[in-house]
């Protein structure tokens, strides 16, 4: 177990290093000149030289790469050009917002999607089951930002129940529990917009997988032994289906981060997705690289976690080396 976990960790680090280096080179090879962008149109040679000295841009590509790796090893991602602060600090400031959208969305989608799939699998061809499936197919195919817009139109503008934008109510200065409630109300629509897509995906897969297991001989045996349908499903169909669901959850994490980015833009929330888009637009090289690395690490972490969870769920995988 320890050896295989260490192997996985080494593989993860190797993948991160390879991909991050590729993106580093991609950025360095990009056309355009960060000095020209920072110094403005009428910069003197001295300003230019000074800027280059300060940012380390007068060094060769190899040296800069080594410097960057050196910094990475010490958890130093460099200084952002636009914010004039360490990149890590800026990212850590924005990360909680993204987590506050992604984690509830993921958790809610997993619980609700599997629960709905559990019941829909009992009668896959019934009217209700088909209607839910059709609705989920629609939710799965709709662009996240359109869904966000529709939710705002419905719940904020029409009904006036929930706030349409931002993280806090700027007019009322809440404190204590009221502030948390305010935050939760602001996050409710973004979480729904990001989560409904995942919910739909999980429901569709859960329904199919659980229904598949219910057609297997071992399930018929369980029913024949006299177990109730719910009990048999819980003990003899869900655990088997859980394996592919957990794998899917890990793999969908990148898609969820993409949805979160679009949702952050649609709702004006200061998360890392919007930070990335702004940094890329403003040609903030260190920040872009830093956020990309962060997204990469989060994706890899989600994959590894779902792998380890699968191992816990399936005794057959525990003995395997890979």
């Amino acid at each position: 177990m320890t050896v295989s976990a260490l192997r996985r960790l080494a593989g993860m680090l190797l993948t991160t290093w390879l991909l991050a280096s590729a993106v580093f080179l991609l950025l360095q090879a990009a056309p355009g000149d960060p000095l020209a962008a920072l110094g403005g149109d009428f910069q003197s040679t001295e300003t230019r030289a000074h800027l280059a000295q300060e940012l380390g841009l007068n060094r060769s590509l190899g040296q800069r790469y080594v410097d960057w790796l050196n910094g990475l090893a010490q958890a130093d991602l460099g200084r952002s050009y636009a914010y004039q602060r360490p990149v890590l600090e800026v990212i850590l400031e924005r990360l909680p917002v993204t987590f506050a959208i992604v984690l509830p969305a993921l958790l809610g989608a997993a619980l609700l999607g599997v629960a709905l799939g559990f019941f829909a699998a009992r009668a896959p061809h019934s009217g209700v089951s088909r209607l839910t499936a059709a609705l989920c197919l629609l939710l799965f195919a709709i662009p996240v930002y359109w869904l966000a817009h529709l939710l705002v139109q419905g719940f904020s503008l029409h009904l006036g129940w929930l706030p349409a934008q931002g993280l806090r109510d700027l007019r009322a200065m809440h404190s204590g529990a009221a502030a948390w409630l305010d935050l939760a109300l602001h996050l409710l629509l973004p979480i729904c917009a990001a989560g409904l897509h995942q919910l739909a995906a999980l429901f569709l897969i859960a329904r199919t997988r659980i229904a598949d297991e219910m057609r297997a001989p071992h399930f018929a045996t369980a029913i024949a032994k006299g177990l109730s349908l719910g009990h048999a499903q819980w003990r003899h169909a869900l655990p088997q289906a859980a394996l592919s669901l957990v794998t899917l959850l890990g793999m969908r994490f990148a898609a969820l981060l993409t949805s979160a980015t679009l949702v952050e833009i649609a709702f004006g929330l200061p998360g890392i997705g919007r930070l990335f888009v702004d940094a890329a637009r403003g040609r903030d090289y260190p920040l872009v690289l830093g956020v990309f690395l962060c997204v990469l690490l989060l994706t890899l972490l989600a994959n590894t976690l779902s792998d380890l969870l699968c191992r816990q769920l399936d005794p057959r995988l525990r003995g395997a080396q890979r």
Binding site: V23, A254, L257, T261, A280, R283, F292, L296
Partner: peptide
């Protein structure tokens, strides 16, 4: 594991 969407943003912003 390459985050496709983020890569596309990066390339669009830096390479046109």
């Amino acid at each position: 594991v390459l985050p496709r969407f983020f890569l596309a943003i990066l390339v669009a912003a830096f390479y046109g």
